[in-house]
Every structure is written in C-alpha cells, then in structure tokens.
Nucleic acid binder design. Structure first.
Lengths: 339, 339
DNA sequence: CGTGAAAGCTGAACCGGTTAAGAACGCGGC
DNA sequence: GCCGCGTTCTTAACCGGTTCAGCTTTCACG
C-alpha cells in the first residue's frame, strides 16, 4: 500500500490537486465545505506531506536544521552540555515540526565541509553554530553560504550573524568574591581551549574580578575540556611551591578530574583546596565531595537558539540576545581554608 | 547566484540534462570524453545534487537515517553511551554521505509518533532502534511501517528485524568470578530499568554466574540509569545488616553515584566494598578510586549498526549479528576485603 | 553495399508537492 | 439583458533530479 498523495485525495474528493493543496494548507481558494471534506479524506487516508516534495517546490523549506559538534569524541560522551543543549533545541524544533541533523566532526575543516555540503545539497534550512572562536573562520563561511545561521556566543566576532551570547562577568565576579570571602588569596583557573571565544571572555572577567577583590596572583591555564588535560594541569598547579588554594574549572568534567588529582595527592577538599565547576550536571551532585558549580540553564539556551533560528529561516530579522546569566550553586567542594 | 542545477551544466556542455545525469552518476550512456567534460563543468560550477530532488525521484533515497533516544534528559547528558554510539554511527554514515536525524523523546508514545512521522513524511530512509524492551511495541510498529530498521539488542523479541545483539553472559561470568576470587560472597547488582531487554539478560546471566561460582546470595535491584535512583538503591543496600561487599552497576553514572554513597556512609572502597561499572567512559578513570569497569566498544557497535542499516536501506538481506563481547578492566575500585 | 547491433545522445514522463493564471459560475446593480 | 466582480475551482508550469523509449550515427560483418 503506497503512501497516499494529494492526487489520491483529489481523486476521492473529485477535485483537482490544486484545490487539495489549498485546502490542506489553509489557504483561500476553496469553500469551507470542500475544505472540510478534503481534510476528512486526508485524515482517513492517513496522508502526510512528503518532505522532499515540499522542499523541492519553489521557496520550499526542508524542515530540518543542523548542528555540528566539533569536540574530541571521548570527551563528548560525558560532556553534559551538548545533550542538554540538544534537548532544548529539540523541544522547540519538535513543536515546529522541524528535525535536527547532528554531525560530529574531528576538526574545523570537516565542520566547514559539513556546512557547505548541507547548503549545496539543501539538507537543512539553517544551522546553529557553537563554540565560537576568536577570528572564527566559520563566521565568514556561514555569512557567504545561503544558509541561515545563529551563533551561540559573541557578541563580538559574529559578523552579521545573530547570536545568543552570555555575559559571564557577573557569574565570574560572584565566584571570585565568594572564594575571596572564604579566605582564598591564590585562585587558579583551568580553562577550556584558548581559541574559544567564551574562554577568553571568562579569562578577562576572571582577571578583572580578581583585581576588584584585591587578589594579587591569579593564573589561568588552558586545557581542552577533557579529563586528561585537566588532570595534567591540576597536578602541575598543586605541585607548585605556593600552590593555589582554590581552582575554578571551565566545565564539570575537568572539575571531577581535578577532584581526583587532589585526592591522589592527598590534598583535602575543601579544607585545603576549594573546587568550583563551571556548568552543572548530575555529575557535580554525585561525586564526593559534591561540586560547587556555576549553573547555567543550557536547555533554555538551546530553546532560545532554536527559536531564533526558526525565525531566521522564516526570513524574519532576528536580533542578537543575551542568555540568562549563570548562578553560583555552592556545594561541598568549597569552604574556608583549615587553619 | 542560484545553486547550479544539472540544467545549467547541460546548457554549458551543450547536451541534454539526461546525458548530464548519466555522466554524473557513472552510468553508461555517454562517451568517456563527454562524461569527463561534464564532470569538469560540474566541478567548475560547484554543483552538488539536491537532496530533496534526489529523494523525490522514483525509488530515490532521502540520504538520512534517524535515531530516537528515549531517556530522561538530565541523565542523557552525562550518559557516555549515547554520544559514543552516535559517534560510531556517524563515522559510517558520513563515509556514505548519509545524515543522522536525532530525536530526544519523553516517552515511548512520542518515540512511536516520531517513527510514524518520519515514515509518512519521508524524512529518513531507515532508523536504528535502541533500548529494546521485553514485548517491545516498537518492534511491531516498525515492522508495519515501510521503514527499514535495525535493532540494538536481542536476539529474541525483535520479530523479523535484523538486530545487533550482545551476549553479556561471558562478561558477567568474568565479573562474578573475579569478585568471587577476591573473596566476595555477597554481591549485589544495581541494574537498569527492568523493562529493558538487556537488563533482563544480564540479570539472568548474573544469577547463573553466581550459581556457578557457588555464591548463595545474589540480589538485583532495578534503577533507571540515573544517579538519584542509584544513590537511593545503594543507600538501602549498604544499610542492610548483612550488607553486600561488592556492587555491580549497569552503567558508569550509577557506579559514580554508588561511590559517592559509600564515601558518605564511611564505607571504604575497595577495602570494605568493591564497585564495578558496566560500560566504561572517561568518567571511570577520573573519579577516585578509579572504577573497575566492563568495557564494551560502543563506538564499534554504532559503526556496525549503521553499516547494517545502510545495507537494509539498499535492499540487501541483512543478517543479525553479535557485537563484540565486553571485557573487564580492573582498576582501583575492586580488591580483596580487608581482614 | 546492405544490414544489424551497439554506442551515444535526446525528449519526455515522473516523483509530490506549490502556486500563478485563467475559466466557470452566481449575483447584484444599472 | 448586460456588465463587473468575487468566489471557487481547474489547468499547467515549476522545483531538480532519474530513467525509459526511441532516434541517430557509427561500424563490423557477411
């Protein structure tokens, strides 16, 4: 039994397929009586519009958007950020009957190739770009392609693309003040890749907040969000003569790694070392001591980004927006230094 | 500047669009000279085939397959299994120029609706189904739909669908023997949802292996892969008068949660309690003590499943296969009981 | 030199929708 | 009775490919 088409409906209803199309799309051109009859027949036949056919029509939409994730695969699995983001994006897309294409790449060249292929082959109506970098070549590429795009990150360096950016200054200030209030004077930060835009933003915010709080020595070392890199970085930091008494990690996975290193080196958390994770997930609540974390509503970010993209796909002018700021959720991994 | 089409190529080459189609698809019907000329022109114009147009042609493929993930969203984020699976699937799909549609649902009804919509609207050429349950209603639904499908799990209860199943008996036996050899007599297992097919399989394997090893008392309690459920279950187990001395968790996230509970209750791991995680991820190596785990090559499973599905999409008869068995990787969370 | 077959290419139909242009019809106004 | 107009519907083109039937041209073979 073949998929029913509008021609089948037209035959049963005794009208032309043009009339059926008008009726099904709620456009004027058919009487209410006829429209209802056609809708009934369509329901009875179990008709659903063919995606490819719709897309092929002049001005037609594909009904799908793409997301490329370019991070090392092993880390990805345990990186809660992405699935939360995807979950939020999906919520909004599903409501609009739009599908999500997910692509995992090894490097940025592959990512660019994916965008180009999607545009050339008309696989998607638009894309959401994440992990904005400084002087990101993807921005120029996406601006050239006939492919609506929304950037997660910014607000600078996104060219003419609408972006959903987050101001992390406030959260960073909260973190630094909190740690300073606990008595910490030497705070170090284990950051994400230096090339990422939001990494830089946080580094600047970190330096400024430390200055405000009157902390002399702050230090940021760059890692890549993986446990191994964080492990190495933490070992080095804790081996310093004047070792830091508080560590701020750019994601929760690295914070867990840091916790493990502290344990292994016999540095008690939190009496000798405080640990803060940026980005919360169930993980932070499961390890012991549970991890103090900066909580961002990643699901909401995903939803908002999806909404923005759907707007752009419809041809609306979409303004850049600010995502809700993160908040510090203190748990057991931070505290005053033992005397 | 519009996307170039084969008509544009035809015009430049001075041939009909039929000839261009033959040339571009490597089909006979054009001379080698003409074919080369057409290929050159296509390259110069930056031509790429339109996905929707290809799909619309009689017998055409959409060039995409779908994956629905039906698990609680917060757990998903930190569940390494899925991203590893996706990563493996993607590798194989990318090589074939096929895209992946990912859909996250709240319940099984939504999942079924997604399959039906994908089939009715021709959004995908096939789907990979995961988390097989006992008497799974999705099997019958997928058998009725004109939608090639491959099941992860089995080998029974998949109807006529080809499946990639894993025999976990061997790995389970290895785990139980190992723990028994360390001196453990009371082993408990914190499992995934009872409705999942592989949960049942493991439960049976667990009971059998325990019998073989001469262990009197084994116990399986069911959780849902989330940290909270595992936390509750572990608390209850460790509060028993005759508490188990070894715990086997059905995924790594729950094992991490269990480790936290042990710590909180002052039960030292591994001298008083051994912990084994089923499914390895970076997480297992990051927490302290690092977690002994059963390692399965999830990426390879994803690749194999994708290969099987691509075969089915091409109309080949695809036989069910067995996935490579898991292996025990002992780390620091298991050991002999302290005297 | 005639003939048959193969090679190389064209024209047109087809997939399943959307949409612009136009036809048929009823109706009110003059 | 005729005109103009709005409603309702039909016709046909179009999107960008694939593929089948058929038409030339070439060429080997008897």
């Amino acid at each position: 039994m073949r998929r029913p088409t509008i021609v089948d409906i037209a035959r049963v209803a005794g009208v032309s397929k043009g009339a059926v199309s008008y009726a099904l799309n709620g456009k004027p051109g058919v009487s209410d009586r006829t429209r209802q009859r056609i809708l009934d027949i369509a329901r009875d036949l179990g008709w659903a519009p063919s995606g490819p056919a719709r897309a092929l029509s002049p001005g037609g939409r594909v009904g799908a958007v793409g997301l490329v994730v370019d991070r090392p695969a092993p880390a990805l699995g345990v990186e809660p950020f992405f699935m939360q983001l995807v979950s939020g994006i999906e919520t909004e897309l599903t409501a609009a009957g739009v599908d999500l294409l997910l692509h995992v790449t090894e490097d940025q060249a592959e990512e660019l190739a994916a965008y180009r292929r999607w545009a050339a082959e008309r696989r998607v109506d638009g894309v959401i770009m994440v992990d904005l970098r400084t002087d990101d070549p993807r921005v120029a590429a996406l601006e050239e392609l006939p492919l609506p795009a929304v950037v997660l990150g910014g607000p600078e360096g996104v060219g003419g693309l609408p972006c959903l950016h987050s101001d992390e200054t406030a959260a960073m200030r909260e973190v630094v003040r909190y740690l300073a209030a606990l008595g910490h004077r030497r705070i170090a930060r284990i950051a994400g890749p230096e090339g990422f835009r939001h990494t830089r933003d946080r580094t600047r915010a970190f330096r400024e907040a430390a200055g405000e709080a009157g902390l002399a020595e702050t230090r940021t070392v760059y890692a890549d969000y993986t446990g191994e890199a964080a492990t190495r970085a933490t070992r080095r930091l804790l081996a310093l003569a004047e070792r830091p008494t508080a560590l701020v990690y750019d994601n929760d996975l690295m914070a867990v790694a840091g916790l493990g290193v502290a344990r292994e080196m016999g540095v008690d958390v939190p009496s000798r070392l405080s640990i803060v994770a940026w980005d919360d997930s169930v993980l932070c609540g499961l390890v012991r001591p549970s991890l103090t974390a900066v909580v961002r509503d990643t699901v909401a970010c995903g939803r908002e980004a999806a909404r923005m993209l759907l707007g752009r796909v419809e041809g609306e002018a979409v303004a850049s927006r600010q995502a809700p700021p993160g908040e510090l959720h203190p748990r057991a991994s931070t505290g005053p230094l033992a005397p």
